[in-house]
Nucleic acid binder design. Structure first.
Lengths: 208, 208
DNA sequence: GTCTATATTGTGATAGAC
DNA sequence: GTCTATCACAATATAGAC
C-alpha cells in the first residue's frame, strides 16, 4: 500500500512498479499488484486492460527516468571530466537506492528488444550524436583520439554492474548493509579516478 | 532436441539449460523443456521431481562453469598483467557466445541469494584469499598499493556488462551481428589496455 | 523407464450488479 | 468507478498402466 494520496490509476502504477521491478514480468501477479495498490483486481484491468499494457507503462517510466538524467548530464556544458564525475556519483547512488531498476531494464530489453527504438525517439535520444559529442570533447579537452563507443560502454559498465551484482557482492564478501553503502560511496570517487587515469594513459600513444 | 546421443537425464538437463537460460525460472515451462528434450513431460518429473530441483541443477552448473575458469586463471602462476589479458579475452568471448548466461546468473542470485554460500564452498572459492592474492601481486609487480576489491569489481564489470547489455548495444546503435562480433573482439584488447592504463595512473600517488 | 490420464491449483481476463 | 462472481485455460505435479 503506497502513497494513498493520489488517484487510483497512479496508485496502481506505483504498485505495478514495485512488483514488476522486483519480480519481472513473468514473476509478477496481477493479484499482488492489486493488493499492493489496495484495490480490487478488476480495477487493474479496468485502467490498463491487460498485463502487457501495464508492464509497458512501468518499463517506459523506468527507462525514461534513467535516460533523461543521462542525456541531461552528457549534453550539458560541463567539461568532460566533470561530466564523468557527475554521472558516476549520480548514477551509482541513485541505482544503489533503486537496486532492482537496472536488472529490470536489462531483462526487459532482452524480452522486448523491438520496443527500444520507439522509446529512444520518445526520449529524444540520438546515440550517434552522443558519440560525436564524446569524441569531440575528449579530443579537445584531453587531447586524445579514442573510440568513444568503448569509453561510453566502460563508463556504463563501471556504474551499473556493481549495482546489478549487489547480491553477489553482499553474499560472497559477507558485506553488511553499512559496508555495502560505504562501498558504493567509495565508488563515486574511485571510478571517475579510474576512468580518467585510463584515459590519460592514451596520451602517450596518440597525443601530439 | 539436443544431443540425441546421451542418456535421458542428460538430455533433460541440456534442454532445461536452454530454456531456463533464455526465459528464467518464471518464464520457463516444464512442457517446453520436455519438448526440447524430446521426452514426455512426466519424465522430467521422474528424474528431477519438481521445477525447483531442475532449476537448481541448471543454476549450479552455470555458476560452476564460470567460477571454475575464473579461479583457474586468477590462482595461476602468471603475471598480473597476463592474468587480466587472459581473463578478459576468455570471458568476453565465452560470454558473448553464451549471452544469456550472465543475466541468468545475476537474476538467479537475486531470487535465491541464500544458496550462494553453499555454491562457493562447493567450488572451493575463497573470496578473501583471492583479494589477498590480487593485492599482493599488484603491489609486487606493479608497485601500487591499491584496494583490490574495487579493482576486482572493475574487471568483472568491464568484462560482463557489455554482454549483459547486448540488446541495448544492438538496438541503440543498430549493430549487425558482424559489427557486434567485431565489438567484442576489440574489447579483448581494449579492456586490458584500459585497466592497465588506469592502474599505472596510481603509481604517481603511492609509488615509492 | 516411459507413457496416458487426471488431479489441483493458479492466473489473466471479462460480465454484470451497484 | 468499483465491486463480486466466474470463466477459460495454463501449469505443476502425481497416479497408475504398460
Amino acid at each position: 500500500m503506497l502513497t494513498p494520496n493520489s488517484t487510483t490509476e497512479e496508485r496502481i502504477l506505483e504498485a505495478a512498479k514495485k512488483v514488476f521491478h522486483s519480480k519481472g514480468f513473468d514473476g509478477a501477479r496481477m493479484q499482488e499488484i492489486a493488493d499492493e495498490a489496495g484495490v480490487n483486481k478488476s480495477l487493474v484491468h479496468y485502467y490498463y486492460r491487460n498485463k502487457d499494457n501495464l508492464f509497458k507503462a512501468v518499463f517506459e517510466a523506468a527507462f525514461s527516468t534513467l535516460m533523461a538524467k543521462l542525456n541531461e548530464i552528457f549534453f550539458s556544458d560541463r567539461a568532460f571530466t566533470s561530466k564523468i564525475e557527475t554521472f558516476i556519483s549520480y548514477y551509482v547512488i541513485f541505482l544503489s537506492q533503486n537496486s532492482y531498476l537496472p536488472l529490470f531494464i536489462l531483462n526487459g530489453l532482452y524480452e522486448k528488444p523491438d520496443q527500444l527504438k520507439l522509446l529512444l525517439e520518445k526520449n529524444h535520444l540520438s546515440p550517434n550524436r552522443l558519440m560525436d559529442q564524446i569524441r569531440k570533447q575528449v579530443r579537445e579537452e584531453l587531447n586524445i583520439d579514442v573510440d568513444p563507443f568503448h569509453i561510453y560502454i566502460n563508463i556504463l559498465a563501471l556504474s551499473i554492474f556493481p549495482v546489478v551484482a549487489k547480491p553477489l557482492i553482499q553474499n560472497i564478501f559477507g558485506f553488511s548493509d553499512e559496508q555495502l553503502q560505504k562501498f558504493y560511496t567509495e565508488r563515486t570517487t574511485v571510478v571517475p579516478e579510474f576512468i580518467l587515469n585510463a584515459l590519460k594513459g592514451y596520451e602517450n600513444i596518440t597525443g601530439s
